[in-house]
Amino acid sequence: MTDRGGAFHPVIELTLARLREFLREPEAVFWVVFFPVLLAFALGLAFSGSGEPEIHVGLIPGQGDARAREALLSVPGLVVHDLSPEAADRALRDGEVALVVRPGSPPEYRFDPVREESRLARFAVDDALQRAEGREDRFEPRIERVEIPGSRYVDWVIPGLLGMNIMGTGMWSLGYAVVYARSRRLLKRLAATPMSRVHYLAAQMLARLVFLGLEVGALLVFARLVLDVPMAGSLVLVSALAVLGALAFAGLGMLVASRARTIEAVSGWMNFTMVPMWVLSGVFFSSAHFPEVTQPLINALPLTALNDALRAVMLDGAGVQGVAGEGAILTVWTVGCFGLALRLFRWQ
């Protein structure tokens, strides 16, 4: 038994110190635990509505506009706005209406075909106007409403939100703490003790895992109980992925913070690292939208790996084998970043 005069092993003491610093900073607790839940709640409210989405259409006054209005209003879910030609263009541009109808024979549809809702509106409007002119349907299809669990947007976005959060909290909490300690010369003071540098970095990572329990737990419980987001696969596997992800981003945060001397400098580097991943890694929309050639690169990003794996387990019920590739990517990031950070790390 080593004599430590009543203190624990350095890794434990360093981890405890980091946890205490964190818990005694009420703002930090808010951003880590409550903010993600608030964000999930807002998204849940916005996207979990079960009613059919409305389609907004603009109508320019002209010959036969009364007849057109009547036909359009008979379609459930279509909302008609009477607009002057100039107002119509503005409304189209701002997305207030998906399509503008200029009555006449034939009528004119103005819309941007790149926008998905505009394409939808085109078919709904066309159908209504053609019928009003006497087109007959050949058959009346039988419609069966199905709700596949996990198919709502909110179901898809929650794992991405979880991944984004693991990234943000991991990188910020580590980067900030390290640079703060460096700017106050606390790191230099620690370097003057026989403290092992590996112990220091390991303790930062360990402390990170404790916060992780808080933040992932809060978000998952909320998503499950309030938003009714499914958990098709095993909760243990989701937790294991969260840990792998947290370690990868802790490593990345450590690497980004390994040389910066000021909070401003490290903030810049953090954003430089994270913003591309927010966009590319499928947090709010699928990364499949990006060109084929970029896909290998996107898939190698740690946030893509984490999001894909979380979705595979939570929505499709994937097992360990199903997410082994993503797990490997995260492990490579962890080991690589940690090793590099240890080499580059500036103690003063």
Binding site: R4, I12, E21, R184, T193
Partner: peptide, 28 residues
């Protein structure tokens, strides 16, 4: 070693700070 301008962690208590530093040494 005492450095000219170290600011120890403000959020820790006196005892916690000394415990932390003590943990790095094998005797004392």
């Amino acid at each position: 070693i005492q450095l000219q301008e170290t600011q120890l962690s403000e959020k820790l208590t006196v005892e916690e700070t000394i415990r932390l530093f003590r943990s790095f040494y094998r005797r004392g």
